[in-house]
């Protein structure tokens, strides 16, 4: 595998990185945003159209982020204010987002739009191997690194980050400590949804370029599974995202070699998704890192205790 292929994997995984980091943040605070597939699709369409009319990828990204944030805000509102089931609302929004993007984006299918311009980072791109792979990309890709690192540092190295975890883990205890549980949940759900929106824009303005139905080829669902595989740790989730990015690139490179297998290759990510989920809950996998503290922390991963529930102060 040459560096160009690896670089294309990093590029292909970019939307997934945004999506899994966003979903991890949201779920850490206790809010499941099941609408990922629909959110990403609708924001991909919106981002494309906004950039198409304004000739600015920035506006495209902002519009996409707004759409993703709005979808997440609906779920948070339904859960927090109305005590509704997050999965139910998320599922409805998934279907609605997909259909709405097909309906509203119909006249933009196949049009040529804006693309995030290529921009190597001077200096860093010279580093052997690492340079061409990670720093000879574009701003959308660099943004995903920044988001990933910031999310990790925020979650595990700041007081606010600990509060975020407390809100998703033991909301009663967090509330007793004076944390505004539901306010935090709104905030992080919306931030996570905004990142899902950025994932959509990364699809239509960078990785796929353009808008068509089924643009994400169901990778929104895979992102949800990667969050579990990632044990609600953004770094580990990113590993999963790059793994599936590699799969995407691999499948597209193998397709001309084995044309008869194109259907089978397309299915592979979904089979792998199931297998990885089986793997993370195998007792053996969980005890794999017992001897090394660092490995153990990386492999340990239980869902936030209050995931998917509503919090109401007594």
């Amino acid at each position: 595998m040459d560096t160009a292929t690896i670089a294309s994997i990093v590029g292909a995984a970019t939307p997934l990185v945004y999506a899994v980091v966003g979903e991890t943040i949201s779920e850490k605070a206790g809010v499941v945003n099941l609408s990922l597939e629909g959110s990403i699709m609708l924001s991909a369409m919106t981002g494309f159209v906004a950039a198409y009319y304004t000739h600015s990828v920035w506006v495209g990204f902002l519009a996409a982020i707004a759409v993703g944030a709005l979808m997440a805000a609906i779920i948070a509102f339904a859960s927090i204010e109305l005590s509704l089931n997050q999965i139910a609302v998320g599922f409805v929004l998934t279907l609605l987002g997909i259909k709405l993007s097909s309906f509203l984006g119909n006249s933009f299918v196949g049009r040529q739009g804006e693309a995030v311009p290529h921009m190597a980072i001077p200096g860093l791109e010279r580093i052997p191997f690492i340079g061409p792979v990670f720093f000879d990309q574009n701003l959308a890709v660099y943004g995903s690194y920044v988001v990933l690192i910031l999310a990790y540092l925020f979650m595990y190295r700041t007081r606010r980050g600990l509060e975020l975890q407390a809100v998703g883990e033991r909301p009663e205890a967090a509330y007793a400590r004076g944390i505004h549980v539901n306010g935090m949940r709104y905030l992080y759900a919306i931030v996570g949804g905004g990142l899902a929106g950025a994932a959509g824009a990364a699809f239509s303005l960078d990785v796929i370029l353009g808008w068509r139905e089924g643009l994400t080829s169901n990778f929104g669902w895979i992102a949800l599974a990667i969050v579990i595989f990632g044990g609600w740790n953004p770094l580990r989730a990113a590993v999963g995202a790059y793994l599936f990015g590699a799969l995407r690139v691999g499948a597209s490179q193998l397709q001309p070699v084995f044309p008869s297998l194109s259907q089978v290759l397309g299915l592979f990510p979904f089979v792998l998704m199931i297998l990885l989920l089986v793997l993370v809950y195998l007792p053996k996998f969980r005890t794999l890192g017992d001897r090394h503290g660092l490995v153990r922390r990386f492999l340990a991963g239980d869902p936030p205790g209050a995931l998917g529930t509503s919090f109401r102060r007594e």
Partner: peptide
């Protein structure tokens, strides 16, 4: 109109009824 319009109507309907019920 694009054929997804039926799904859009159904989705909006369910979303509103669920939120209204809550």
């Amino acid at each position: 109109l694009h054929s997804a319009i039926g799904g859009v109507i159904q989705g909006l309907l369910v979303l509103f009824v669920i939120l209204g019920g809550g």
